[in-house]
Design a protein around this nucleic acid. Structure first.
Lengths: 228, 228
DNA sequence: AAACCGACGAGAGCATCGCTCTGTGAGGCC
DNA sequence: GGCCTCACAGAGCGATGCTCTCGTCGGTTT
């Protein structure tokens, strides 16, 4: 991340990135489970043992790929969402979720790595939780914007299924019902993407793009986002 | 499936089942990716090559486990749903989905095998599509029951994102909007289960059972199921 | 009853994997 | 210029899925 000071560090950083790039290419074509450290080393013309100078284990390599993927997905969603007028809450949701779906369709294996089954014996380390939350943060921002501008009013009812600390951090303490709906929308949207990606809607859904838009609308309705 | 006629076929069927049982146990404890044909053979005291007399490949073994898992999940959901009065549509949805969630929490690895990332280079064969649809069929039955009894009336609007043939097969041709919502609910419910199972709601949701109930209610609302 | 043929199981073997250890070389640092 | 750390290669270990061959045993047919 920081600029390498010595020439040695520079070439090291460069080779590290090169390994990650090749690994990402393998991941994109063959999937996470087929990602082989030896194959990456072969493609780079180095001994397999040399790779361990840069990544202590296969899981470590996978972790960097995961973080990168979360970042790429988050960036895609954020850029799409930023292009929509602030007051169009539903449009912002559509943009963010549509971009997430597009990214998933373009990078199916990476998406599965993020939101599919956890890799065998692999536990997501702390470094992944930040990037993982970016899309969720985006959805929450749409809600809080709506509440701040008065377009949305807190939903009545009580709901204490979420962590109070998270509610406070997100600024949704006084609208816990809508906060729960936000988590529901978040999981539902990604569930729909995975559903399509893994073929569960094969032979059922004809127009996946249209269906996904309707899914977003369903959740937008539940959240009370006004149609523009 | 059919009764074995010869003694040879009987012992063969029995050993086949035994192999599948051991494999299922390994799957339950270690996960799908760690399922090793050799380990199964070791536990059964036979040479690894002998297992290939019963299952032509590891993927084939996995397929039978997948089919069995779909069946177990479907049975659990059906039994729970059958215990609820027919007229309580929302209760039936809660029962079916709650049972699916319970089953998933009790068999996380098997659930991930069904609804997580596809196994490397593994393509679900035709034999899995029947059992896979059982839970979905259950949800559809709740809807069609409501339409038949007049509790539900077709939702206005047009929706042609689903396959017309499926609409006809399910008897939802005259309520395509609700049919789309049904698919949305189906994917959203399983998305929520996977979301919880894979830890994406960790540190966000405090009471997962309550949250899941609210997810079911959200989809029940979207489907227009009356509160009893 | 005898011959036969198919299924069955074991073992060795191949290619692959993640990972470790050891030795050697070359670059940067004092 | 000498030291020293880092980088790399290679061999090796245990494990995987899968194939092939070979001996054996059981059921079937003549």
């Amino acid at each position: 991340m920081s600029a390498p000071r010595t020439a040695r560090a520079r070439v090291r950083a460069q080779l590290t990135a090169e390994i990650a790039d090749v690994a990402r290419a393998h991941l994109a074509t063959d999937g996470a489970a087929a990602l082989s450290l030896r194959a990456v080393a072969r493609e780079l013309g180095m001994a397999s043992s040399a790779v361990y100078r840069y990544f202590p284990s296969r899981d470590d390599l996978l972790t960097t790929l995961i973080v990168d993927a979360y970042d790429a997905l988050g960036t895609a969603a954020e850029r799409a969402e930023a292009a929509v007028p602030r007051e169009d809450l539903r449009g912002r949701l559509h943009a963010a979720c549509g971009a997430a779906r597009d990214w998933a369709l373009a990078h199916p294996h990476e998406y599965s790595l993020l939101y599919g089954s956890p890799v065998p014996g692999y536990a997501a380390p702390e470094t992944t939780i930040g990037p993982a939350a970016r899309v969720g943060t985006l959805v929450v921002a749409i809600i809080t914007d709506g509440l701040a501008s008065g377009v949305l009013t807190p939903l009545p009812g009580v709901a204490d299924m979420l962590e109070p600390r998270v509610l406070a951090d997100l600024g949704l303490t006084d609208d816990p019902v809508r906060a729960a709906l936000t988590v529901t929308a978040w999981s539902g949207l990604f569930g729909a993407i995975g559903w399509e990606l893994h073929g569960h809607t094969h032979n059922i859904v004809r127009d996946h793009a249209a269906w996904f838009r309707s899914v977003v609308d369903t959740h937008a309705d539940a959240l009370g986002l006004p149609r523009l």
